[in-house]
């Protein structure tokens, strides 16, 4: 566990860079976490993030990419464009959720 200093915000991240406590999350933190991954958040990014946060609250588990495309309504191609090179972990990271464990 390490505390990662973000601009004026200090949140605890695990060894893989995921938020330890999802409740620490807010939109400013998401912007910072995304920036660290080289991603500038657009409305479509927010749609993905908001869906993941909402789905996590409702189901208690981090949504799979398949769920984000099927239920969240963001097609696979776009998802890989929004969060290039490894969207599964990047989405979860920016949304302040833990490392996804789903296989799909």
């Amino acid at each position: 566990m390490s505390a990662n200093e973000l601009t004026q915000i200090s949140v605890e991240l695990d060894a893989d860079g995921f938020l330890v406590n999802p409740d620490d999350w807010n939109r400013d933190i998401a912007i910072q976490l995304a920036a660290e991954l080289g991603i500038e958040l657009t409305d479509r990014h927010w749609q993905v993030i908001d869906f993941c946060r909402k789905d996590f609250k409702e189901t208690g588990s981090v949504p799979t990419l398949r769920r984000i495309t099927k239920v969240g309504g963001v097609p696979t191609k776009e998802l890989y464009k929004l969060f290039p090179k490894g969207p599964a972990k990047k989405v979860a990271k920016v949304a302040g959720l833990s490392k996804p464990t789903g296989c799909i």
Partner: peptide, 12 residues
């Protein structure tokens, strides 16, 4: 199929 998809989700 599962491994191919998992690899892509990991950025491979």
């Amino acid at each position: 199929l599962v491994l191919a998809n998992a690899a892509l989700m990991e950025g491979i």
